[in-house]
């Protein structure tokens, strides 16, 4: 069985590095991007099964990135990271096909749970 591939998209390099290390420990192959363009480039190239996407990247439209990913590959599982309990964004993300969402600040155990849930 091959390694699961994850793409993490967040404008903060610290966040991307930290989550990279967190996921690597689980034997996941991690790719990272800090803006929309890189995210789509990496996505097209690596075709990860999962995308962890920050909805609030400044200067970017998180929803448009979500849409493009879903258009390119509808079976890719996208988990949105939202900065606050923004019910409007969450509803919109779900409508646009995001599989799940997690709110910053998050409990890492919750992230674990969400990933496990969608691994099937």
């Amino acid at each position: 069985m091959g390694m699961i591939k994850f793409l993490i998209v967040d404008d903060e390099i610290e966040v991307v590095s930290f989550l990279n290390n967190f996921l690597k420990r689980k034997g996941i192959k991690v790719f990272t991007a800090i803006n929309g363009k890189d995210a789509l480039d990496v996505f097209t190239q690596e075709k990860p099964e999962f995308v962890l996407l920050d909805i609030n990247i400044p200067g970017e439209d998180g929803f448009s990135i979500l849409k493009t990913i879903k258009d390119l590959s509808v079976q890719t599982k996208v988990i949105m990271i939202t900065a606050r309990d923004d019910k409007v964004s969450v509803a919109k993300a779900k409508r646009m096909g995001a599989e799940d969402y997690i709110i910053k600040p998050m409990e890492l155990e919750d992230l674990d749970r969400i990933i496990s849930k969608h691994l099937t």
Binding site: I13, S17, K104, E107
Partner: peptide
């Protein structure tokens, strides 16, 4: 009613980014 990682310093990738994680009261 939880504890948020508010400040940190150290090696990138190892240090926990502020505002990203929290732990609950009963963790």
């Amino acid at each position: 009613q939880n504890y948020v990682l508010t400040a940190s310093r150290g090696k990138q990738g190892v240090k926990v980014p502020p505002g990203l994680v929290k732990i609950s009261n009963d963790s």
